[in-house]
Every structure is written in C-alpha cells, then in structure tokens.
Simulated scan of single mutants.
Amino acid sequence: MIARIGIDIAKNVFHVHGVCPAERQLISRKLRRSQVLAFFGKLEPCLVGMEACATAHYWAREIAALGHEVRLMPPKYVKAYLKRQKNDAADAAAICEAVGRPDMRFVPVKSRDQQAALMLHRARDLLIRQRTMLINAFRAHLAEIGHVAAVGRTGVTELLEVVKADDDRLSPLERETLSHLAGQIGDATARITALEKRILVWHRSSEAWGLMPEGAESYAKA
C-alpha cells in the first residue's frame, strides 16, 4: 500500500514517486496531465507532497477532493533532499522524502477565492508597470522635441494637454504618433481605476477579511 507520494508537477508531463510505510519505493512513473486525477482517484487515501508553485494550489485542491492529504512545501526546503542529479524523477523522490519529515514547513493551500483576490492585485500591478513604461516613453519623445514637464501626475497632465491642443507646438505627424501613446496611457489608467474599485469592494465585503493575501489589509483599509 502506498503511504506517501511526491509529485513533480509541470505543464504537461508530471512524475510521481511513491513509498510504502516501510519506506520502500513502490512507484516511480511519468503521468500526462490528463492522467493525474485518474491516477490519484484509484489510490487509497495517502499523503501527497508537492512543491509550492503557481499551479500547485490548483492540483492540491483537486487531489485533496479525491480524499488525499496534500501538503505544499517551499522548493528551497525540498532541495536539501535531492540525492542525485536533478531531473523529474529525482525531484519527485526528493519531494516524497521531504513531505514525510516531521520538521518540514508547509505552505497553506490557497482557495479559489484567495487566488482570485491575488489575481486582482497582480493584474493591477502589471498595468501600473505598463503605464509607467508608456509614460516614460511619452515623456522621452516629447523631450526630444523640446517639451518637458515636472515629475509626477501634474507633469504628465501638462504633456497630455500639449498633445491634445490644436496648435503648432507639434507637427501633424508628431501629434498623431503621440496621441496613440496618450490613448494607451488613458486606457491603462481607466483599467487600473476599475481594478482598484473592485479590490476595495471585495476586501470590504464581510466574507473577504479572512481570505486576504498577505499585505493587502492596509490597502483595503485605505
């Protein structure tokens, strides 16, 4: 009977390593993504370990729903149990050994709601970075033709007005080109604002307070 399994997860091909209560290896094989749940569905409930990564929380929830106890571990803690050259089989064996250690530190499995909240924050952060890149390019192009403004939102607003104005400070081609960047800056700002409103609504709902991502409390209370 398999007592413990380590699974090395990937996009398409996974590797599982299982041992019995006496620590003898009972299984070491590859699984296609489509085979994973069917494989665990046929097993008696056991302890399943995997490294905490982007997709690990999804697989942890799915495998736990089949009756198994699933534990996630930081990859840096698993590395110490790698006994031979790094490959999928060796990684799965190291995970299998690490998950059985009584002093191992585990990562809580995130729920769908927790992951959705994190997705909101990450989408906002990405759009902010993209808007910053657009603003830097916008400022640089205008500086090349003699138009500069103070750092900050006020300066950006002044430069946007230069592009919008119907005067001879810019040539028709310059205005046409810079209008595309100005439009993208405005679009990114609108999307960021929409996400921020959605984040505040979610975090201020009564059921959300126990599901906040780490560090989000101060933002939600703002």
Rank of each mutant, 00 (worst) to 15 (best):
Pro213Phe: 13
Leu31Thr: 07
Arg33Asp: 10
Arg32Thr: 00
Met104Thr: 08
Lys79Arg: 04
Ala123Arg: 02
Gly215Trp: 11
Arg71Ile: 10
Arg124Trp: 08
Lys221Glu: 12
Ala89Trp: 09
Glu23Tyr: 10
Ala54Pro: 02
Val148Thr: 14
His15Thr: 12
Tyr219Arg: 01
Lys11Phe: 13
Arg204His: 02
Arg101Asp: 07
Gly186Lys: 00
Ala149Asn: 01
Arg204Asp: 06
Ala188Glu: 04
Ser218Leu: 15
Leu195Lys: 05
Thr189Met: 12
Phe14Ser: 00
His121Asn: 12
Ala220Trp: 14
Lys83Asn: 11
Ala123Ser: 14
Cys96Glu: 08
Glu174Leu: 07
Lys110Phe: 14
Glu62Pro: 04
Gly18Asn: 02
Arg112Asp: 15
Thr193Trp: 12
Glu214Met: 03
Val13Glu: 07
Arg153Val: 14
Met1Ser: 14
Met50Thr: 01
Ser34Gly: 06
Gly186Met: 02
Ala190Lys: 06
His121Arg: 13
Arg191Tyr: 05
Arg204Pro: 06
Leu43Ile: 07
Ala92Ile: 02
Lys197Phe: 08
Gly6Ser: 07
Gly67Thr: 08
Ala65Cys: 03
Arg129Ala: 13
Asp167Ser: 15
Ala38Phe: 06
Leu26Ser: 03
Val16Ile: 14
Glu44Met: 12
Ala117Asn: 02
His57Glu: 01
Leu72Cys: 00
Arg198Leu: 12
Leu159Pro: 03
Ile135Gly: 04
Ser206Arg: 05
Gly6Asp: 07
Cys53His: 04
Ile135Gln: 02
Thr193Tyr: 15
Ile2Asp: 12
Thr132Gln: 01
Tyr58Pro: 00
Lys221Thr: 14
His121Pro: 06
Leu31Gly: 05
Ser179Trp: 08
